[in-house]
């Protein structure tokens, strides 16, 4: 069971959180200008990184805030936690 440090509440057990998949996938500003393939890229295509992965979690049974986590998908180690709108510490996205 993961131990996730909510940037607002501190370390909490995984069942308090809701997973939100890859972070830093911005919704296109003008979807109408996109081709079907470009739109599919936004809606469906995602990185599926083996190793450090920037992802989103929501503290749904706590403060209900969404935030970003840099987590290694092999070791499950949380490498960094940062708030929405902040850039990942460094390295992979």
């Amino acid at each position: 069971m993961l131990l996730i440090e909510c940037p607002w509440c501190g370390p909490r057990e995984e069942p308090e959180f809701h997973y939100g998949g890859q972070a830093h996938v911005a919704r296109p500003a003008d979807p109408a200008a996109l081709s079907d393939a470009e739109w599919a890229e936004y809606v469906f295509m995602r990185d599926n990184t083996k190793g450090p992965f920037a992802e989103r979690w929501c503290h749904s049974a706590g403060c209900r805030r969404w935030f970003n986590v840099l987590r290694d998908t092999v070791s499950h180690r949380v490498l960094a936690v940062y708030r929405m709108g902040e850039a990942p510490p460094e390295g992979p996205r």
Partner: peptide
């Protein structure tokens, strides 16, 4: 399990 993983292990709960 809800999260992405390549670890071949999941959460106990």
């Amino acid at each position: 399990d809800s999260y992405n993983s390549y670890a071949q292990r999941g959460s106990f709960h």
